[in-house]
Simulated scan of single mutants.
Amino acid sequence: MDRQTWDRRRVSFGAVAQLYERTRPGYPAEAVAWMLSGVRPGGTVLDLGAGTGKLTRALLADGFQVVAVEPSAPMREALSAAVRDARVLEGSAEEIPLPDGSVDGIVVGQAYHWFDPELANPEMARVLRTGGTLGLVWNVLDERTGWVALLGQELDALDRNSSLSGRSVADELGAAFRPAEQADFRHVQRLTVTDLLDLVRSRSYVATLETPERDTLLRRVETLVLRNAPVDGHQVLALPYVASTYRATRR
């Protein structure tokens, strides 16, 4: 993917903030607990690239003090409307608006692949205290299920920046962090066929398509789902995910 396309996709989420909030899955409690197992109860955790607060809510439920940093104004507005107990700040991974060593943990949900690691990794190390924990998580379609594999193939044909896209998280974080550990946590999102189509619309590589191409894709996805997915009488289906999760300790 060229830099211009990457930049356009990176800033595309503001236009689909409400779709993102309504249709994107949350994160399994087990994944959040594993990521932050080294952070004391009540500690301060930075949710970086917080989006609409999908991960912020899980952090608050676990009793952490949360600072949510997000560059997109529409995403921050959706976050603030949905989550009342977090401190919400404008900022980015490359310029975190916090003092040195001010947080006990950092988590990044579905966003690290949009960071510039040469700038973001030192910034994360700067604001994270020594011995603090960095956690990264992606919800990835669980393609062990046949119809989900077909859906994945349809979307992969467009996606040139898949969440892990050949990047080695364990090797990329740099000398400030100990080697990363990785674990998978499986979970299921229940949603209607209409919601699934809106979820597809919320993806950056779909949101940035021209309207005719996007409409054609959505018709193909709808046909694929109705022909292959087990849909109940209310047109609700179960979409399985793997929460691919990493954690690393600040040296």
Score class of each variant (00 low, 15 high):
T223Y: 11
A50W: 01
Y205G: 07
A170R: 15
L164Q: 10
P117W: 13
A125D: 07
R250Q: 08
V193E: 08
L199S: 13
R219E: 15
R203G: 02
R9H: 11
M124W: 00
Q182S: 03
A50M: 01
R3Y: 08
A31L: 03
A175L: 06
A33I: 10
W114T: 07
A86C: 09
W34E: 08
A157W: 05
R40Q: 12
A82L: 00
S163G: 15
I96R: 00
G53I: 02
A157H: 04
G14F: 01
R87V: 15
Y241N: 08
E213R: 13
D159W: 01
R201N: 11
V225M: 05
V88T: 03
S72F: 00
S204E: 09
E210H: 09
G146Y: 15
E210S: 06
T52K: 03
S202H: 09
D116C: 10
V140I: 11
L164T: 12
R201M: 14
L239K: 03
A149F: 15
A238W: 04
G166R: 02
V69I: 00
Y27F: 00
G43P: 11
M35G: 11
L46A: 09
N121K: 06
S80L: 00
V148F: 11
A31S: 10
Y27C: 06
D215E: 15
G109F: 04
S165P: 01
V206A: 07
Y20P: 04
V67Q: 00
P212L: 04
A81F: 13
T223M: 12
S202M: 06
H113N: 08
P25V: 03
G91P: 05
D85P: 04
H187K: 09
G131E: 04
